[in-house]
């Protein structure tokens, strides 16, 4: 057990250390996110007539959605990384190490999600600064929920890579998933707007992005945004935890079964 925990720790550290390779990537992402929230979000909030009560505008509403979508994209990117490791033969090397398959799967998922969270930390700080949100408890709660959400998404993305076992197909599947899941969620619009197209509403009501975006909104604006959420705050929190736990368990079982035998295309 102690050895397993040590190995788990080493795997997590391995993924976190890799962040240092991505200095330019982080800088580009931060620059791109700054344009998204400083230009796109600012302008688009001026064409939106929707008001949320008090001083709250669409801009505040969208900022937390934008953070959710970038965290989702960066967490999904762990899947690309795994696909690349397959192509480079690194996964086969890891299989030859004296590490249990289960520990390897959990370690890579937890390491990947912590790394994703760290990569998006500058974006979260930009959003918090723009919102003027400096309450420590709210910030810690937002960080914890983002971290848990990322575990679910990294589990999903790595499972998909093991299922598809092809670099090109992974690329396409992730592109389609990203564009559909971000748009069919409450990232851009409140739940009441989605109600105008019932099929879209149903998809968004089981979409994890909707749950994190709305939970973050509830953390910082519990009064103003409560009636615009897709579900009540307690359910939002339970959904995020349930999604992450179930995806982690499923991914661990799935990876254990699929990792043997290769078959990478």
């Amino acid at each position: 057990m102690r050895d397993d925990l040590r190995l788990l720790y080493l795997l997590i550290v391995y993924d976190i250390r890799k962040i240092m390779r991505y200095k330019v990537f982080i800088l580009m992402r931060v620059a791109w996110f700054s344009v998204q929230v400083g230009f796109f979000a600012y302008l688009i909030s001026h064409i939106v007539g929707q008001r949320f009560g008090g001083e709250l505008t669409y801009y505040h509403f969208y900022l937390l959605g934008a953070y959710t979508s970038i965290l989702f994209t960066v967490s999904m990117f762990r899947g690309y990384e795994t696909a690349q490791e397959f192509e480079e033969g690194l996964i086969e090397y890891m299989l030859s190490l004296p590490i249990k398959r289960k520990i390897l799967a959990i370690g890579r998922i937890l390491g990947g999600s912590i790394a994703s969270f760290i990569l998006t930390l500058p974006m979260m700080l930009i959003v918090l600064f723009l919102l003027g949100a400096f309450d420590l408890f709210s910030i810690l709660l937002a960080m914890a929920s983002a971290m848990i959400f990322s575990i679910g998404i990294v589990s999903l993305s790595i499972s998909l890579v093991f299922l598809i076992k092809s670099g090109d197909a992974t690329d396409i599947t992730f592109g389609i998933l990203d564009s559909l899941l971000v748009r069919l969620s409450t990232v851009f619009y409140p739940a009441i707007i989605l109600l105008s197209f019932i099929p879209y509403y149903y998809v968004s009501s089981v979409n994890p992005l909707s749950y994190l975006a709305d939970f973050l909104r509830w953390i910082f604006y519990p009064q103003e945004l409560s009636k615009y959420l897709i579900n009540n705050p307690m359910n939002l929190a339970f959904f995020i935890i349930g999604f992450a736990t179930s995806m982690l368990v499923l991914a661990t079982i799935f990876i254990e079964k699929k990792i043997e035998g290769g078959g990478w295309k």
Binding site: I47, V48, S179, L180, S196, F197, Y200
Partner: peptide
């Protein structure tokens, strides 16, 4: 898919919010 999602999901829904 991405282009159509922008049009038939994003634009259709956003149309209900725009001034």
């Amino acid at each position: 898919t991405m282009n159509l999602a922008d049009l038939f999901i994003f634009a259709l829904l956003f149309n209900n919010m725009v001034r």
